[in-house]
Structures are given as structure tokens and as C-alpha cells.
Design a protein around this nucleic acid. Structure first.
Lengths: 186, 186
DNA sequence: TAATATCCGGGACGCTCATCCCGGTTGTCA
DNA sequence: TGACAACCGGGATGAGCGTCCCGGATATTA
């Protein structure tokens, strides 16, 4: 690979990463090319399809989330591990609109792409959740889909404006809902 | 207005309502025309723009939500009123994908359209929320944006498959999170 | 029933966007 | 330094969509 090709590829990745984080996955490829200072053909050549560009960027972030999940899975306090991972996911999503949309499945099947890369996001979450439930830190009658939905809710709290105080507040509300025993007041 | 024009207008409204509920707001106008058994021109004539069609349908549903809010606002038990409205909103959204997207603001500013029609959705929610907070049924440190975000979360629980059991479960989790006192375990 | 205003169908047009392609250019290596 | 393969830019292409328009059809009213 020629040196200028490597440089351009890196420029495209950087511009796309920033654009996806700020504007979301719907940003046009031509806009990414413009910001990267290259032609649209250069983008298409390095990443034959827009989805390939998603994968290169989103899966990089997902990989970090998986690392975090694996590291937390070995922690002593299963409840703390679960809630810390929850907060970490929400924070990542809040700071990266494209990532949040990928979680939500908005026009790009992240689960499929992740599993193609050897990641199983749901399994990682399930492990943390199950451990926390066995430790009595999370009510037993929720599943991973419930947890994901609550994550989406926390992410929806801050479409654009990242407000850490609001983020902490809504996470606290969800945490206390998840911590409650199965049916005290229902 | 000619009789056949009225019939066609009704057919379009019905087809659009069903399509929006099932597929969401992104369904093409041409598809709505096809299902209604009319030409695309007929749709455009009755509703000059796609957004006008949204308004005619979505605002009808929103009107019912507002009626429900008003009726609940006079109830004795402010806490029960708030949570019943919450559950009602989630159920409506779960059964109507277009409505859920309208709430989320996906490509259509429902708040603006609603206020143009004399509705103030946020104010109605705020009234119920404030009453419930003053009654001590909902923690004092959440605002309407938090509540809306939690609604989105509940809606995300069932993208397509309406599962009442899962819906009740996640609503219960959120209810208990919202009921908790501001900082017992945080 | 005849005349006319209204309405219908669906094709035309313009727009946005992803992808492909080609003539010109630049890095690379002998 | 010269020649060639690799690469670049950006215009061309095609698909999907909303909106507009026109020739033909139909309801209405006298």
C-alpha cells in the first residue's frame, strides 16, 4: 500500500469517526469526504460500501465496550460491576451519537456486524446481568432486552446536549428501579 | 366537496393510519396510495405535503392522549394518575409505531405541530408530574425530560412484537425507580 | 340527459445520496 | 531520473422518494 493511500485512509477514518459521533450514521459519505479533504472516490475505494465504514469505526468502539465488560465480569461485587457497565455504556452512547444509533439498530445491524467480528454483545451483557441477579443486586424478573431498553431510555435523555448531571440522575432512577425486589409495590 | 373526493380522502386517511402504525413514519407516500387503492396525485391533493398527512393522523391520537391527561389531572390520587398516564402513553406508542416515532421526534417535530393545534403535550405531562411529586409519589429530582426519556425506553422494549407482559415488567421497573426517594442507595 | 366544475390516475420532475468509473497525477523503485 | 503501477478527484449513473401536473373520467345540477 502506497504511503499516501495510508494517509488518506487514516484521514477518512478520523473524519468519519468525528462525523458519526457528532451527527450520527445518517451523515452523507460525500460530507465525510469533504471534511477529510479527499474525493468521494477515495472513500469508496478504501471502504467499498458505507456499511463497511460503519463497521470499521463502530466495531472499534464496541471492542472497547467488550473489553470493559470482560474486565468487570471478574470483579467481586457483581452488582457494582453491572451498574458500572450500564453507566459506561450510556456514557459512551451519549458522547457518540453514531454509536447510540448503532445500538438502537437505526439502519445498521450492529449485532450482526459484531458477531461477524467475533463479538457477542448480548452475551457479555447477559453475563453481567445474571451475576448481578444471583448476587441479589438486580431484580430477577428482568432480561437483557429490558436492560437494553432502559439504556436506550437513558440515551434518549440527551439527544444532543451532553448533560452529565441529567445523565447521572436518570441512571440513578433506573438503578433504583432495577435494584428493587420483584414486587413490593406493584 | 364531491362525494367521491370524501370517500377517497377517508380511504387515504385509513390506509395512512394503518401504515404509520405498522411501519412507522418512513413509509413512502406512494405505498400509502397503493394500499388505499388511489393514485399518488390523490394523496398529494388532499394532503399537500407528507407532513400534513402526519399531522392529520398523529394529532388525532395526540388529542386523545391530551384528553386522557386532562381527565387524569382531576383524579384524587396524583401518584396513580401519573403512573396510569405513563402506562397509557407507553401502550399507545407500543401499538402504534408512527406515534412512537413522532414522540421521539424522528423526522417530524410533533411538539411544534401539536402546539400549532393548541396542544401542549409537555405542559400536560408536567402537570401530572408536579402533582405526583407534591403528593410524594414521585421523587422530586426528575423533570419532564427524564420522564419522556424513560417512556422512550419502555417503547424501545418492543420495537415490533407487542408483548404485554414485557411491557408491564419494564413499566414496573421504571415505576419503582421513579417512586424511590431521592438518595437512599445512590 | 347534457354541460360543467371537480376530481382521478399515474407519469414527469427535481432532489438527495451511495456507488462506480475514468482521465490525470503522484509515489515508488530500479 | 525515468517509467510504471498505484492512487486521486470529482463527475456520471442509478435508485428511492416527495411533489406537481395534465389528459381523461366522473359526479353534480339544472
Amino acid at each position: 500500500m502506497r504511503a499516501d493511500a495510508q494517509r488518506n485512509r487514516a484521514k477518512v477514518l478520523e473524519a468519519a469517526s468525528a462525523a458519526f459521533a457528532a451527527e450520527g450514521l445518517a451523515v452523507p459519505v460525500q460530507e465525510i469526504a469533504r471534511r477529510a479533504g479527499v474525493g468521494t472516490g477515495t472513500v469508496s475505494r478504501h471502504f467499498p460500501t458505507k456499511e463497511a465504514l460503519f463497521e470499521a469505526i463502530v466495531l472499534d468502539r464496541v471492542g472497547r465496550l467488550m473489553d470493559r465488560a470482560r474486565s468487570l465480569a471478574t470483579t467481586q461485587d457483581a452488582g457494582a460491576a453491572f451498574f458500572e457497565y450500564f453507566a459506561y455504556m450510556v456514557e459512551e452512547g451519549a458522547l457518540n451519537r453514531g454509536l447510540a444509533e448503532a445500538f438502537a439498530g437505526t439502519g445498521f445491524d450492529m449485532e450482526a456486524a459484531a458477531s461477524k467480528a467475533g463479538y457477542d454483545v448480548t452475551a457479555a451483557l447477559r453475563e453481567l446481568l445474571t451475576n448481578a441477579q444471583q448476587a441479589g443486586a438486580v431484580r430477577a424478573d428482568v432480561d437483557t432486552a429490558d436492560v437494553k431498553a432502559l439504556m436506550f431510555g437513558c440515551l434518549a435523555r440527551e439527544r444532543d446536549h451532553a448533560d452529565p448531571a441529567a445523565r447521572d440522575r436518570i441512571i440513578t432512577v433506573v438503578r433504583e428501579g432495577l435494584s428493587a425486589s420483584p414486587s413490593p409495590a406493584a
